[in-house]
Design a protein around this nucleic acid. Structure first.
Length: 216
DNA sequence: CAGTCGATTCACT
DNA sequence: GTGAATCGACTGA
């Protein structure tokens, strides 16, 4: 018998801890996206940690800019970036105010509002693929830069909230190198800061970083 | 101000 | 497995 997920909101203090502590603890939590058409809820199954200005793989590595400004702010807020000219990815800001660390939400299982998610993810061949990958996750939840800076810990009307859910037990958590991160591998250290739930079918496949060939 | 490339995805072979 | 799509942020001259 499966316990009903706990829908208590996660408090800001949850996110104020060190990012490497928060990231694995996020697995099994529930993200609720409230759209004009209704709610979409997602159970997190895969995340990656980015450890502020000390982390070459992080957008915060080269300092504060208009794009990454939210990362430098208080924890519990959402950092959304636009990439490859067509996709969005979403993060949750962690650590004390000013730390600039964040967790990239890479994959999850849609547990509510799948019919809404399907209309945004027409290329998905099945429901496991709706949010299998960070840009797919953002697309399924209708997240773009207009939500950058949203407080996921605010009470009342919010487009995004994060709930307690059913945290993954530590023996179900796996970790390994981050996907597609230029700062990892090579001459630098590989940070095994990708965390996922073992054997979960919604987790995205690992890919090493490949520099893009120059366009003709 | 031009050049480079990205915390990716999808269609094809 | 390979390559295209697509644009804005960032870099360095």
């Amino acid at each position: 018998m499966i316990a009903t997920p706990d829908r208590t909101p996660l408090p800001r203090e949850f996110f104020a801890r060190p990012v490497l502590e928060v990231a694995p603890d996020l697995l099994g939590r529930i993200l609720v996206r409230t759209t004009p058409d209704g709610p979409i809820a997602l159970r997190l199954t895969e995340v990656e940690a980015y450890d502020g200005p000390n982390d070459p793989g992080s957008h915060a590595y080269r300092g504060r800019t208009p794009r990454n400004d939210v990362m430098f702010g208080p924890p519990g807020h959402v950092y959304v970036y636009f990439t490859y000219g067509m996709w969005h990815c979403m993060n949750l800001v962690c650590g004390p105010d000013g730390t600039a660390s964040a967790v990239l939400l890479r994959a999850g299982e849609i547990i509510e509002g799948a019919e809404l998610a399907r209309t945004r993810r027409l290329s998905a061949r099945n429901d496991k693929e709706l949010a299998k990958g960070p840009a797919r996750l953002a697309t399924a939840l209708d997240v773009d830069r207009t939500l950058d800076g949203t407080d996921a810990c605010a009470s009342g009307d919010t487009p995004l909230r994060i709930l307690n859910g059913t945290p993954a037990s530590s023996d179900q958590v796996r970790n390994g190198p981050r996907t597609g991160v230029a700062g990892d591998g090579g001459d630098g250290d590989v940070h095994p800061w990708r965390f996922w739930i073992a054997n979960d079918p919604t987790v995205s496949p690992y890919r090493a970083h490949v520099p893009r060939r120059r366009r003709s």
